[in-house]
């Protein structure tokens, strides 16, 4: 379903930042129970930029370690594998959001907040349903609107027309895109996911976060991100460029087997979780720009 306009846009995004190879190597390594902290440190220190940034982050006030951490091995031992991977992924995704070319800085910051809020919410929902891959859910949610960044930066006129239509008719950006452009941010997300060789689960959640019933084997994960998106919009954490609430997909809700009484404690946890992660984001900004 590649229409020519979408293809042309994809050709222009050669200079879009990519997720560094190192991030994928690290993901594979962490999934291997036989990897040691030293193996992991070896891979990270091969990438000088990542090494410098990681050390700046672990020495930031967010972690507040009493002594200065000077080696990656020490950072891994102190923080653990999962936290390190999480950190690397979040900083890498942040790079994509902080491309300084576009003047729409505020819109991008709001989209980053929306993405981060969804990521926090996906974790909260994942915990509630006892999902076995909570960190993956975080990543899926963090990237679910990545297609919007591309439109914002590389198809500014289209994006302006779409946000205007969404505001005028009080409809979702997703619906406005379908009406005006013959492609949506989910389609762009699919192409990016292929280009970046993202795991199938992440790719499918990006594509189906508005239509979780079509997500096939990853229907549950798509349902988590669909609900996380609704939570985030309800709590007004950031903005995805539109103001309309997506209708709850009842099949998705049923699939999660949640109870109505779970909503209040989950929303409260999303609110506090988002506040907790804000200093972390500030630390990322400092580490990325210092």
């Amino acid at each position: 379903m590649l229409n020519p306009k979408l293809k042309a846009m994809i050709r222009r995004i050669d200079d879009l930042p990519t997720l560094p190879r190192t991030v994928f190597r690290i993901t594979e390594m962490i999934n291997n129970p036989r990897s040691s902290a030293r193996d992991l440190a070896q891979v990270i220190t091969d990438d000088q930029v990542l090494t410098a940034r990681l050390l700046r982050l672990v020495n930031s006030s967010f972690y507040g370690f009493p002594q200065r951490i000077t080696t990656i091995t020490r950072a891994i031992v102190l923080l653990g594998f999962d936290a390190i991977r999480h950190l690397l992924l979040t900083t890498s995704v942040f790079d994509i959001f902080s491309d300084r070319k576009s003047e729409l800085q505020v819109a991008r910051e709001k989209l980053w907040d929306h993405s981060l809020g969804c990521a926090v919410a996906a974790k909260v929902i994942g915990k509630q349903i006892r999902h076995d891959k909570i960190e993956e859910l975080f990543v899926c949610a963090l990237l679910h609107d990545i297609g919007k960044i591309v439109s914002m930066v590389y198809a500014q006129e289209d994006y302006a027309a779409v946000t205007r239509l969404a505001a005028e008719k009080n409809i979702l950006l997703f619906e406005a895109e379908a009406a005006l452009l013959e492609y949506t941010h989910a389609d762009i997300g699919r192409l990016l996911a292929e280009r970046w060789n993202l795991p199938n689960m992440v790719a499918d959640v990006i594509v189906y976060h508005h239509t979780p019933d079509q997500a096939g084997p990853y229907a549950k994960e798509a349902a988590v991100v669909h609900l996380a998106d609704i939570f985030c919009r309800a709590l007004q954490l950031g903005s995805g460029g539109d103001h309309r609430m997506p209708a709850l997909d009842t099949a998705a809700w049923d699939l999660l087997q949640l109870d109505e009484t779970d909503i209040a404690p989950m929303l409260a946890e999303v609110e506090s979780g988002f506040n907790d992660i804000s200093p972390f984001t500030d630390a990322i900004v400092t580490a990325a720009t210092a």
């Binding site: 609704i230 309800a234 709590l235 709850l248 109505e260 929303l267 409260a268 609110e271």
Partner: peptide, 15 residues
Amino acid sequence: NPIMAEICRVAADIV
């Protein structure tokens, strides 16, 4: 939808 109504109610309080 009653679930959405609940989300709206709780979120409004938090906001």
